[in-house]
Design a protein around this nucleic acid. Structure first.
Length: 204
DNA sequence: CTAAAGATGTCCT
DNA sequence: GGACATCTTTAGA
C-alpha cells in the first residue's frame, strides 16, 4: 500500500457498502480510492485515515443533538457526501453511512495521492506530495471539494466517488482516538494505515 | 437575538 | 508548543 502506483479503479462502491455500521465502514474505507472528476481532470488518492461519527450515542458527532440544516444529510440515504464548513475557512468531507433515518458519517482525514498530483499541488500551493492531503481540510482543498458537493450521491461515479483499488496492496490497520474533539474523546474511532507517511498524525 | 465554539492549517518562536 | 485567521452554525436566552 504505501507505494502503490496503480491508478486504475473499478466502479463506485455501492449503496450496500455504506449502509452498515459506521465504525465498520470507516475501517473498510482504508485502502479504497477517492476519485474526483473535474471535467477532463481526474484526481485520485488512496484513503489512509478516516474517523467514524454516529448519532445520539456519540457526543462528538454533529448529529448528536438531532437533525439540523447543516447535518441533515447525515440522516439521509447512505452513500452521499456530507461536506461542512468550519473554522471560517475549511471544508471537511464525510461519507454518509447507516440506513436512511439513522445518522452516521465517516470523516475522510487523509489520502495518499496517486493521480492528478500536479493539479493538487496547484490547488494546495505546496510542492511536497506529503503535504497535499494529510489532513481533512488539506484533502478537500487538494480534491476541490466544497459545499457545492454536499449531499452529492457517491454511487453514481460522477464528480466524486469512492472505488476499489485495481490492484490493492496489503496493509495493516491501526486505531486511535479521534482528533480535534473535546467530548467522547476516549473512543478509538479513528482508523489509519499503519506506518503510512500520508496519515495526518501517527501517534496514539 | 447573541455569543461562543468549532471533526483545522499555517506561521511564528 | 502557541497564536491566530475567519465566519457559519448552533444552542440558549
Amino acid at each position: 500500500m504505501p507505494h502503490s502506483l496503480s491508478t486504475s479503479t473499478s466502479a463506485p462502491l455501492t449503496r450496500a457498502f455504506y449502509e452498515r455500521n459506521t465504525v465498520r465502514v470507516a475501517k473498510e474505507l482504508l485502502g479504497k480510492v477517492l476519485v474526483r472528476r473535474l471535467g477532463p481532470v481526474l484526481l485520485k488518492g488512496i484513503i489512509v485515515e478516516a474517523e467514524a461519527y454516529r448519532g445520539h450515542d456519540d457526543a462528538a458527532s454533529h448529529a448528536y443533538m438531532g437533525p439540523t440544516r447543516r447535518n441533515q444529510v447525515m440522516f439521509g440515504e447512505p452513500g452521499h457526501a456530507y461536506v461542512y464548513f468550519t473554522y471560517g475557512m475549511h471544508y471537511c468531507l464525510n461519507v454518509t453511512t447507516e440506513p436512511a433515518g439513522q445518522p452516521g458519517a465517516v470523516l475522510i482525514r487523509a489520502a495518499q495521492p496517486i493521480k492528478g498530483i500536479a493539479e493538487m499541488k496547484r490547488r494546495r500551493r505546496v510542492d511536497n506530495v506529503k503535504d497535499l492531503s494529510n489532513g481533512p481540510a488539506k484533502l478537500t482543498q487538494a480534491f476541490a471539494v466544497t459545499s457545492t458537493l454536499n449531499a452529492h450521491d457517491l454511487t453514481l461515479g460522477r464528480k466524486l466517488y469512492v472505488a476499489e483499488p485495481f490492484r490493492p496492496d496489503p496493509f495493516a490497520i491501526a486505531s486511535g482516538t479521534r482528533i480535534g474533539i473535546r467530548v467522547a474523546a476516549e473512543r478509538r474511532w479513528r482508523f489509519f494505515v499503519k506506518d503510512n507517511p500520508f496519515v495526518s498524525k501517527q501517534q496514539r
